[in-house]
Amino acid sequence: MSTLPTPMADAAIMVRRNLKHNLRNPTTVFNAVLFPLVMMLMFVKVFGGAFDVGGDYVDYATPGLLVMAISYGLGATATAVNDDMTKGIINRFKTMDVSRGSVLTGHVVVTMLRCLVACAAIVGLAFAMGYDPGASALDWLGAIGLIVLLSFAAGWLTVALGLAAKTAESAGLAAVPLIMLPFLSSAFVPSDTMGAGVRQFAEYQPFTPIIETLRGLLEGDPSSGDALAALAWCVGFAVVGYGWAVSTFKKRA
């Protein structure tokens, strides 16, 4: 008999279930882990020489690519959540007396694990390409903490999007803005080099302060202003996503 409280034991079961589903789906693995690596090779080796960022391009681009690695796996989460809601799986769990909240928790935890694996792969490839961060051990700890927080927040927001969607296809499309936003930020070029309109959008959208905070931490020179904005956005995403997900789940489950 498990010594864990029932909700925790159920959540652990859901995590194992979702992990198996992810590992058996090569498209999910590619989009979440391999495609960000392809993007990194393309931006650094193909486009990097055309950008003037005042230093090695791999040093500049790595923080943005970490955020992109998180966002690229979110479509799979939204689709998986919607599948559970629309294909009768939740009703089967009800007959098995499974904790209802564990279903959502399982998706969020697996999303976080997938994001962390993708980020670890990005960092490994960055070092192989000559990445030379100036971060101290404390800076690295702060960067890891921000990545975990962003993964947690994005996980809940994506679960909410998946629950709100009517079909699996629309759930995948609902996550597209989260995938595209890093392209319209300071991930690949400084925002002050962009044209009017795009520059203002890049400066005030959620991912730019998160990327700039990661960039500062990894360079050993974090900005308190960017850090506060980054934390505020992450906490806001988490609170909105959690509240929206729980409310929608209670109505539909």
Rank of each mutant, 00 (worst) to 15 (best):
D226I: 00
A143S: 11
S2W: 03
Y72P: 00
T248M: 12
S151N: 06
A12Q: 08
Y131E: 01
G225V: 09
K87I: 00
W233C: 08
L184F: 15
N91V: 12
A135I: 11
L163R: 12
G101H: 04
E212V: 05
D56C: 02
I144P: 04
D221A: 15
A160S: 14
V53G: 07
M194G: 08
S247I: 00
L23M: 12
V239T: 04
V53A: 03
T158F: 07
A76D: 07
V38W: 08
R199P: 03
S71W: 00
L116S: 08
S247P: 00
S170Q: 14
A121L: 14
G106P: 13
Y72V: 01
V235D: 00
I70M: 07
F47Y: 13
A9N: 13
G241Q: 02
A12Y: 05
Y242P: 00
D52E: 13
G155T: 07
V15P: 08
F201Y: 11
L161F: 14
F207Y: 11
S191T: 15
G49C: 11
P190H: 07
L228Q: 12
G216A: 10
A76H: 08
A245T: 06
P222E: 14
M8P: 00
Y72A: 08
L163C: 12
P5K: 01
T77E: 02
K166V: 12
I147A: 09
L228I: 14
V123W: 02
L65W: 03
P206G: 09
G243M: 08
A238W: 02
D221Y: 10
T208K: 08
V198L: 15
R24G: 06
M39N: 10
G197N: 08
A175Q: 06
D10W: 01
P63G: 07
H21A: 13
R215K: 05
E219Y: 05
L217H: 11
G241R: 03
S102D: 09
V53Y: 07
A229L: 15
R24V: 02
V103I: 14
S2V: 03
M68V: 00
A164P: 02
D221Q: 15
S186G: 15
G243N: 09
D56W: 00
G130N: 07
D10P: 02
E219H: 13
M180V: 15
A11I: 04
G243R: 08
T193C: 06
A121R: 10
A78K: 11
V29N: 03
D226P: 00
I90W: 10
G216D: 03
V240S: 01
G142Q: 11
E219V: 01
T248Q: 14
P26S: 11
A187Y: 01
A135M: 12
L74H: 06
V81R: 07
A160H: 09
P63D: 02
G64D: 01
I90M: 15
L23D: 02
C115M: 09
M14L: 10
D84M: 09
P36A: 09
V176K: 06
R215C: 04
A164T: 13
V46S: 01
A153Q: 04
G243A: 06
R199I: 02
P182N: 00
S2N: 10
P177A: 11
K87Q: 12
G88A: 13
V29W: 05
A9W: 11
P133W: 10
L66Y: 04
L41N: 06
F43I: 13
D52R: 09
D192A: 05
G88H: 14
I211G: 04
K45F: 04
I144D: 08
N91Q: 15
T27W: 14
L65Q: 10
D226T: 08
L228H: 09
